[in-house]
């Protein structure tokens, strides 16, 4: 199966070896952070195994549930855990490479480094910062940090975000209105969606 994500580390590797082009298997997702790195360094992405057009035009039958898909919602919990562990360790790796002004802690990772939104790689610290600045709703946090905007639509992080917000505001989590539910429930192709 194709890797689920391309992470910062993969891009960093390519950079270190002076590559200006990266081949990735079709249907691979690129993490937002990795994407920024790609953009910032003018790296070209090529899909392996097919001409660019073919790769992206390849028909996917939306009714075929077994189709290999990058959807986080469709990988098993065990796999998800592994991916999350990877993301956490890789983000920490990437952070320690950043310039010293953004890295405050020498004593290893803190609670704030915990990745809360796995799809978008958003940490607890980033969420707390927004709450500290006066944002008081899960919808607000989602818009600004992107936590919950990824492929799983907050299925994994919504509860954690609510908890962090409740702690930040000093109220009970039950008093917090969850983010607005958005259709579709699971990813659906334009072709399938267009038929209503």
């Amino acid at each position: 199966m194709a890797p689920v994500f391309i992470f910062i580390e993969d891009i960093q590797k390519a950079l270190d070896s002076d590559k200006k082009e990266i081949m990735i298997p079709r249907e691979t997702r690129i993490s937002a952070a990795a994407f920024d790195l790609i953009k910032g360094n003018d790296i070209r992405i090529r899909f392996v195994g097919d001409q660019k057009d073919d790769a992206l035009k390849a028909p996917v039958d939306p009714t075929q549930e077994t189709q290999a898909s990058p959807a986080v919602g469709r990988i098993s919990d065990g796999e998800l855990e592994k991916v999350v562990d990877l993301v956490i360790s890789r983000i920490k790796g990437a952070k320690s490479q950043e310039s010293s002004e953004t890295v405050k802690k020498e004593n290893g990772p803190t609670d704030d480094d915990l990745v809360i939104c796995r799809c978008e790689e958003i940490t607890k610290g980033e969420i707390k910062e927004v709450i500290k600045n006066g944002i008081k709703t899960p919808n607000g946090i989602k818009r600004i940090t992107r936590a919950g905007m990824g492929l799983c639509q907050g299925q994994t992080c919504q509860r954690l975000v609510t908890q962090i917000l409740a702690t930040g505001l000093g109220i009970n989590p039950t008093e917090i209105k969850p983010t607005t539910g958005r259709a579709p429930v699971r990813p659906v192709s334009f072709s399938a969606f267009s038929t209503g």
């Binding site: 992206l56 959807a71 639509q153 958005r182 579709p184 990813p187």
Partner: peptide, 13 residues
């Protein structure tokens, strides 16, 4: 943009 035909929509609002 025919090329987007099989791209996945994840959210509407």
């Amino acid at each position: 943009f025919p090329i987007l035909k099989d791209f996945h929509v994840i959210r509407t609002w």
